[in-house]
Design a binder for these strands. Structure first.
Lengths: 228, 228
DNA sequence: CAGGCCCATTGATCTACATCAAGCCCCGGT
DNA sequence: ACCGGGGCTTGATGTAGATCAATGGGCCTG
């Protein structure tokens, strides 16, 4: 086995989707994978195109968005290493509902649709993992819709920061926003201007400090209070 | 085979989720099913509860919603005969992200979680159908988020009416709203008042006529124009 | 170190939609 | 036939958040 093959197996093992699978299954998937090295700003696919397969993010960052590429658009999700892109459209075989684009130089694994479905049909545990991932997608989107419909901009910002912080261990340890602020704003259904104002409101009350994309939560309890 | 069993097999065959399956698979699912007859206004489960399994709607109508049961809430989807409820939470085994409630006297089939997952693990085509259903859920929710973020209230109303009409055959044939107007409004992220105004705007321009819950599209092209 | 560019911030203004408050209509029960 | 209540409409008013317009930094590049 050459070095490059060992690396793709290692990347598969690190992917959230495949971590729980038996080594033999991981190896089988790795066999049908192609590795992509893409520069920043490249689109994986556009809204409406057919999706060649499932992408696993090894390094870099991917933005999922909807709306016109030129005019108004809205960020659905920001996906980092270990995550995956394009699962729903791949299992359906229908045109994509969103557009995916690299936000930084990224390396991805592409598992072709045929290989994925074929493996899922033969290996029950893989099928269950894919279902679970899709289920998590559904729940996440429902939670987003709830937030957009029922919570104020301020609440959404507070809640988002809290989520990032808890993902990063202790809530008071500084962390970095996963993209530039205008994209975070869009992810939260806000304009960059309004997002900035909300951030500065939190700074003014001594709840957080901001230094570029670096955020420190000073008062988690107060932040939690304003997120509800 | 008694009459009641034949009926549940027939209901399974009519469900969008299971229509494409082999008769043997349909029979296997039917064997583990319980039939529920629920009066209007009964909750199947609440946001945060664990879901006992997958519900198939045989007759009646189900509303999926998020938010406080008492205070503000938002309708995610309205589900009629042939549809299904609770798939995502069932495959995940996690608490529900939404609340489900009957809007009319309804009869449902309940397929327990264990039975569904077990069958899906053994029968690949069932697994693929479940994945496809979850994928459709993801795409639908993304489309909703796009509509809520990027389109005006007027556009959402026009688009929704157009969708209902195309589902019902010829677009100019009268059709009936699937719930009272205040719930449709919530489904579209609007207040009942604003929804009413948008409807009357469309009436004023001669685009549609409204009689209670019955809607007739007079000018599909104009409606399509305002939906964009 | 100057120049340009992109991003963030800040202030002033605007507006799509929500909220509040009556009325009205239809329909079902007595 | 009367009454009551829920759901829809209509009008007046309020506001969260968008838009428009400068200005102010990094940061890279030459």
């Amino acid at each position: 086995m050459v070095k490059h093959e060992r690396e793709t197996v290692a990347a598969i093992k690190r992917a959230a989707l495949f971590r729980a699978l038996a080594p033999a299954t991981q190896a089988r998937l790795a066999a049908s994978v192609t590795t992509l090295n893409l520069p920043r700003g490249r689109q994986l696919y556009r809204n409406g195109e057919r999706c060649p397969g499932l992408y696993i993010v090894v390094s870099g960052r991917i933005m999922l968005s909807v709306g016109a590429t030129d005019g108004d658009s809205k960020v659905i999700e920001l996906i980092g290493p270990g995550g995956h892109v394009g699962l729903a459209a791949t299992v359906l075989g229908t045109p994509q509902a969103a557009t995916a684009e690299t936000l930084a130089d990224s390396t991805l694994l592409l598992i072709p649709r045929e290989a994925l479905l074929d493996s899922a049909a033969h290996i029950a545990e893989l099928g269950l993992q894919l279902m679970a991932a899709l289920g998590r997608g559904v729940c996440g989107l429902i939670t987003d819709i709830e937030a957009f419909s029922l919570r104020s901009g301020r609440e959404r910002v507070a809640n988002y920061l809290l989520q990032l912080a808890t993902a990063n261990g202790t809530r008071t340890r500084p962390f970095t926003l996963p993209a530039k602020k205008s994209l975070i704003a869009s992810r939260l259904n806000l304009t960059p201007e309004y997002f900035s104002r909300m951030l500065h409101e939190l700074i003014a009350t001594g709840t957080i400090t901001v230094n570029g994309r670096q955020i420190t939560i000073l008062d988690p309890d107060r932040l939690h209070g304003t997120s509800r």
